[in-house]
Write a protein that binds this DNA or RNA. Structure first.
Lengths: 209, 209
DNA sequence: ACCTGAACACCGTTCAAGT
DNA sequence: ACCTGAACACCGTTCAAGT
């Protein structure tokens, strides 16, 4: 049961997120967001408190989309994997806005609730309490970093990574040694799953009986 | 042996980085950078190609500071650890500019050379060639993400994390179960080293004989 | 070749004024 | 209580002009 104040605020933030999705983060101006909800820029201030509040609010909306993945769902390992996949899917739905999750960390009751759900999952996995906060940061750092790297093009912009296996062997000897490996088209879906396998292996072998 | 063109460009980029260090990324305007090097904003365009080129150039300067850590230095494990520590130290020296490394990936000859050095280290570690690119992305994603999270305050802004062990047990049950663990002051230096230990364990047990 | 000054089309934000 | 319109101090960038 949300009051009308919250509904109006949410409509503004969703408009901002939609503009980011359609035209990029630079297009998210106070004026553009206001126009999309039928107001002037100045009318936004009492509700979202300026540009900084607007960007923090976008992060809130992204977290809200992540919430279903953090519901109870039996096996802790499957739950962890579900959250990791949901985070990457979120980044692909909102590539322009997603990096805000790393840049503007949220400390709302909702974000704390999500952190609580993650702690619960890690405890359910059998990780000793004293290691849980660190393991949570290790995993969330990797998952956030991977999704952000992907949408920011850090892993290479297109599939044929422009003959990285055929660079000058004098200046790039290790690339030359890798050769054909670098010519394979990258499959980020498969790579992410392999990384999750590795991290699950790490957790099981280090922190559970 | 660098020509004068490159020197001038470097002076501009170093001025931009200095402004970011002193007054934050928002203070890095074309006009402010120009003033610091004794020019008008328009004089920067032929050398750095607009605001986007300026930000990419800042990333170049950050990478240049990282270069010494990628020199040969015997044991591959120690070299990897050295690079990981140098990356985090870089983030602490340039907290405002560092997140650009994740947001604006660089694809210069220098960045390729650094990637090559990393590939070489992983091959020297005994990792099979077909796994090297993925392992490099796994490690660099974690290291970049950790350093960025730290400077962006994602791990909590100050040391006493405001009684996170004493939240309402009804809404945050896992926090309540962790209790005293969350009251410990966080030591990010020690945590980072522990994470590196874990990742080294992962590499050794999965990909080397 | 290199730089400047004026100008343009924006920005976030303040504030007095309207209803 | 909620919103507007005008204004302010910026921004990145273009372009004709100077030397």
């Amino acid at each position: 049961m949300e009051d009308v104040e919250t509904d109006r605020r949410r409509a503004i933030l969703d408009a901002a997120l939609a503009i980011a999705d359609e035209h990029g983060l630079a297009a998210v101006t106070m004026r553009a967001v206001a126009q999309r909800v039928g107001l002037t820029a100045m009318a936004l201030y009492p509700r979202i408190g300026g540009k900084d509040g607007l960007l923090d609010g976008i992060v809130e909306r992204l977290l809200a989309e992540l919430a279903p993945a953090l519901e109870d769902s039996g096996d802790p390992a499957q739950r962890l994997r579900g959250v990791a996949r949901a985070l990457r899917a979120l980044a692909r739905r909102h590539p322009a806005a997603f990096p805000l999750m790393l840049a503007r960390p949220s400390v709302t009751p909702e974000s704390l609730r999500q952190l609580d759900a993650l702690y619960d999952t890690l405890l359910g996995f059998g990780i000793p309490a004293r290691h849980v906060p660190r393991v949570e940061r290790l995993l969330s750092t990797f998952a956030l970093g991977y999704a952000a790297s992907e949408v920011n093009g850090r892993f290479g912009r297109v599939d044929p990574r422009a003959g990285r296996g055929r660079l000058d062997p004098q200046t790039y000897p290790a690339h030359a040694r890798l050769g054909a490996v670098l010519e394979d088209p990258a499959d980020w879906d498969a790579e992410y799953e392999a990384d999750l396998d590795d991290l699950e292996f790490l957790i099981r072998s280090r922190w559970t009986a």
